[in-house]
Amino acid sequence: MDFRIVYGMKVLILNRRCIKHPEKGGAEVYTMEIAKGLVEKGFQVEWFSSKPKNLKEKETINGINFIRKGNEITTHLYGFLYALKKDKSWIIIDEFNGIGFFTFPLKNSILLIHQLYKEFWTAELGLIGNIFKFIETILLRLYKNKLTITVSNSTYQDLIKLGFNNISIIENGLNISPLERKPEKEKVLTLVYLGRLKKTKNPEDAIKAYILVKRRIKNAKMFVIGEGPLLSYLKNKYTDFQDITFTGYLDASEKYKILEKSHFILIPSIREGWGQVVIEANVFGTPAIGYNAPGLKDSIKNGDTGFLVSNYKEMADTILKVWESKDLYEELSKNCIEWAKNFSWEKTRQKFLNLLKALR
């Protein structure tokens, strides 16, 4: 049976945020790469999301038709109603980010989930977050019989525990090719944090680790790349540390220049879907020191491309240990580049397309 005839090569993506959303993250980057790949193969692609004040209700980007309505809560209802208007020739991709779009009764829908929120709820909301953690679990179980796509073994295992039985792992990719060898790094020890500046990412722990390192290595410096609700707080608190540079948001080329020159990337997140910044840093032979958390356990090969630690003190100790062993650092750096060669968005898109074809 012809795949084109069965599905009409039409895909509706339901995601609470779009690629232009001011708080977009790795999930939106992943979705955009998949959507672009589908358009290149001749698919008609629509992406339904919430509407921030500065964005249009409708626009087309890279051949993808964006429809925006509601805030980050109400868009789930609007998105579900929009999905109901689609006939069976459409494939509906329901992205679950703490809450889904309730398409579990629809036979032509599949689930895409990067990570469970779990600890996120209590980190952001305190004790009341336990209520939302419970609701997330109940809502997710409604999808347990759907074809499900996730990006890491960590989330795969979380879903298995909830009774899911049809899960495929399709990891993130890369827009850049890994180098053939480690580039020339800064002459002084240089650390970098890259990500949203919010509680669940623990950016202050990265800074605390740096301060401990600096007690022994006086000329060490650090870049903090990203924006978020903690930016002003961190800049004000650490204003006396002249060797900490808060860059704010950087475009890809500026970000890559810093990753290329840095010696370590620090990732103290409490949970990740995968850890996109890990692989981006690995491209340049930059090892990651991250918390032993879901997602990071998948993207960081402990002892091979970086290290998993439990707290910022252990993070600082590990940095110093590796820095003082040049042979160990060179081995890690070499392994990082080899590890990064396993990933590309072309591979990710092809795996995704193959999965959709299997639906016929």
Rank of each mutant, 00 (worst) to 15 (best):
E346A: 13
V277Y: 00
V278L: 10
S262D: 13
Y291D: 12
R360F: 07
K118D: 10
N282E: 15
L234G: 11
F284E: 03
E28N: 06
D240K: 15
W323G: 10
K341M: 08
K36A: 07
G228A: 10
S49P: 00
F352K: 08
D251T: 07
L332W: 11
A206K: 01
Y143H: 14
K334M: 06
E204R: 09
W47N: 13
S109E: 03
F132Q: 03
I217N: 08
K214N: 13
F48D: 15
T245Y: 12
E57A: 14
E184L: 06
V39F: 00
P294R: 07
V309T: 11
Y210T: 01
P183R: 11
N166V: 15
G273C: 12
N202R: 13
K235N: 04
V45W: 01
I279M: 12
E33R: 14
N175W: 02
E180V: 08
E330G: 03
Y82G: 00
K36T: 08
I73G: 04
F164E: 15
K58G: 11
L127C: 00
D2W: 00
I110Y: 01
T103D: 00
P229G: 01
I217F: 02
V277D: 04
P294T: 12
K185G: 10
I170T: 12
F132P: 00
K198G: 13
A293P: 00
V192F: 02
L38W: 00
F352R: 07
I73A: 13
K20T: 11
I61C: 14
K36I: 07
L77N: 14
P203V: 04
S177A: 13
K146W: 00
G8Q: 04
G70L: 06
V39E: 05
M315Y: 03
G173Y: 02
L38T: 15
C336N: 09
G285P: 01
N166F: 06
L174C: 04
W323H: 10
I211L: 14
F284P: 02
F96P: 05
Y7W: 14
G70D: 14
N302G: 01
Y210V: 01
E272S: 06
G226R: 05
D158A: 11
R215F: 01
N54V: 10
H114N: 11
R68F: 00
K36G: 08
Q242E: 14
I113M: 01
E346W: 03
I61D: 15
C336G: 06
L189N: 06
I138F: 15
E72A: 05
F132R: 05
T190V: 01
L359D: 15
K24V: 14
I67C: 09
L162Q: 12
N354Y: 05
N165P: 03
H21D: 09
